[in-house]
């Protein structure tokens, strides 16, 4: 019997906003905290919590700096983050294919 696709879901990644953060970060070299906040329509505190989870899991790198006098936080996806995102997308597609068959 084949394993159900949901067994491949990663609890750290399988969360809509974290998936959104990883998807955007994987598309660009670096993404700024404020951009994510506005695109994902999250509060700074909420986004910060998701970023911390992803950073602690080694899926995101956080770089703090300044643009003039303004503090800026840049995020970039790690190789592990790219792999985790690809695996999650594969699981979602497999779930969809299974759903369409039934």
């Amino acid at each position: 019997m084949t394993e159900h696709p949901t067994s491949g879901l990663d609890d750290t990644v399988h969360q809509r906003h974290r998936l959104g953060i990883l998807t955007i970060a994987a598309e660009v070299k670096r993404v700024e905290f404020g951009y994510l906040k506005s695109i994902l329509e999250l509060t700074a505190g909420n986004l910060s919590r998701h970023v911390t989870v992803l950073e602690e899991a080694g899926l995101l790198e956080v770089e703090k700096g300044y643009d003039g006098k303004r503090a800026k936080t840049w995020l970039s996806v790690t190789a592990a983050g790219r792999e985790a995102l690809a695996a999650e997308m594969a699981v979602l597609r497999a779930l969809l294919a299974r759903h369409d068959q039934t």
Binding site: I24, E27, I39, M89, L92, L96
Partner: peptide
């Protein structure tokens, strides 16, 4: 999953 994948594709397009 379908909506989630659509949402993620839209985010990727927007970032690009």
């Amino acid at each position: 999953p379908r909506h989630l994948l659509d949402e993620l594709s839209a985010l990727r397009r927007r970032a690009r």
